[in-house]
Amino acid sequence: MKKNKVPSDIPFYSFIWCFGIMYFALILALLYADASYTSFSEIKNALNDESIRASVWLTFQTCWITAVLSIVFAVPTAYILTRYNFPFKRLFDSILDIPIVLPPLVIGLSLLILFNQIQIFDKTIESWFAVIFSSINKVLPENWPLKFPNGITYKVPAIIIAQFTVSCAFAVRTMRNTFESIDSRQEDVALTMGCNRSRAFWTVVIPQAKFGIMTAGILSWARALGEFGPILVFAGATRGKTEVLSTTVFLEISIGNLEGAVAVSFLMISAAVLVLVIVRFLGSTNSQW
């Protein structure tokens, strides 16, 4: 009997390692390029600029609000998708992915049209919000530190809505994976033990989903940090008013201050790397279970 020699494994290993390392090297090269183009003093100068400092502060505030809102909406939405069957579920699921696949500028444009062209009871949504906000402002005490603006478009709430529209879709995906990994029979047991649906959810499901919730929140935060297109169209890029870090980079480039733009970019990269490390850490803690 003729014995065939088994071909070597070297071509297979070369193939997978070659492409993996090439992509990894591209990302490292990008980080190196940014790091080599800026310096600690450039970053310090950027942080000393009042408008950039305001931009950092506004970015920080809007990203946290977006992350919290994303979790509040993503947890029930993902739970419905994993635990219940209903007509057109696949269509519902696909629609929830639209913000992930749509071009960012289109999302901004869609938000602009939704708030300023679609009328409900003879008023645009923008006008309704203006009415609601001014009514709330009238009720608030005179010296109340936080007053609502007289509308949404080209104001701070527009930044949050633009960030939320995209970030929440990512949070839903993350929470869906989390709920799918939790055995639904645990809820069944809790129901037979005397829980109603709500109690089973809060005492059995949520404690197990806490790492998933944190991961979803952090990813939403990171996604909100990098959002640019929808913010530019729906909130504008007015210095000191609707300027967040991504729009700062755009504004610095547009006035020819490449060093300033790179310094701000470096701040964003540092925040993104920190977030990814935290997510990976939470992921590894979670996998123990």
Binding site: R185, Q186, D188, V189, L191, T192, M193
Partner: peptide, 16 residues
């Protein structure tokens, strides 16, 4: 299920 007062032991235990 909560109102039936049945003790349920699922396959594989399914502990919380």
């Amino acid at each position: 299920p909560a109102d039936r007062h049945i003790g349920f032991v699922p396959q594989d235990g399914v502990l919380f």
